[in-house]
Design a protein around this nucleic acid. Structure first.
Lengths: 125, 125
DNA sequence: CACAAGCCTGCACAGGTGTGCAGGTGTTTC
DNA sequence: GAAACACCTGCACACCTGTGCAGGCTTGTG
């Protein structure tokens, strides 16, 4: 069998672990730092009430205009615009201009699955 | 049929929507602000690379000590301690003291499901 | 053309957040 | 008992981030 610590980067391989096997399993479980950063950024988008509300509305209410998003979420139109700009450059949503109205839709399968993790209204209505 | 805007809070029911049906669907899709905040807090815990790495390690490498977490993640032991304190008060992890070693484990089903959304190492090894 | 609606942006401010340092507690070992 | 180990905490700092204000742009309307 190989060295149980073979997954630990050399720069810190000299430090003494408490449980070598667990450390190796942890390194494997974490995966590549690059991927961790990408997923942390994804989760970060959902980590603020305003953005989460906007994303839920965009995801579940189909293409929707900025004014309607502000009306439904209770956030000022300015703040909604800022949020949408952030989501746009992050590749989370795409804008479709129709006349003077811009409708946004969700455009990220990973985010869609994460949003589906959030339970909808319990009783319906 | 009822008023299509019946789901919009009175305080902003006077504002003119672009698509009443869409606004109502958005309000329903967002759900209760209280629940949105709770889920935003959940996602926020996963929204930082350090915390996400620690949570992934704790989740996939079973009960693990602080030293081993610092070794596996490459984060300083102080930073790991701070992260674990935050996760503790958030109810995400629980600590089990064994001698002078403290092993942490994940203790939140919702977070566990979200962590399972993060794909493991592609090829294995 | 003048005006309003819908939306976007730059700027400055307050508030939250991660990090390192220094020091402390409890436990094990010699 | 002294020293090393594993871990925790308070504090101060730099940093990032969300928000509102003011203004600008484009598109419809009279």
């Amino acid at each position: 069998m190989m060295d149980p610590m073979h997954l630990v980067p050399e720069e810190r391989a000299h430090r003494r672990p408490i449980d070598e096997h667990t450390v190796c399993a942890a390194v494997a479980g974490i995966g590549e730092p690059q991927a961790v950063r990408v997923w942390a950024d994804r989760f970060s988008l959902l980590g603020e009430p305003g953005r989460l509300a906007v994303l839920l509305a965009v995801h579940r209410a189909g293409p929707i205009a900025v004014t309607d998003l502000a009306l439904a979420t209770g956030i000022s139109e300015t703040a909604v615009s800022q949020i949408l700009r952030l989501l746009r450059v992050a590749g989370a949503v795409t804008a479709a201009k129709e006349g003077r109205v811009v409708r946004y839709r969700l455009d990220d399968p990973d985010l869609a699955r994460l949003l589906d993790s959030v339970p909808p209204l319990p009783g319906g209505h």
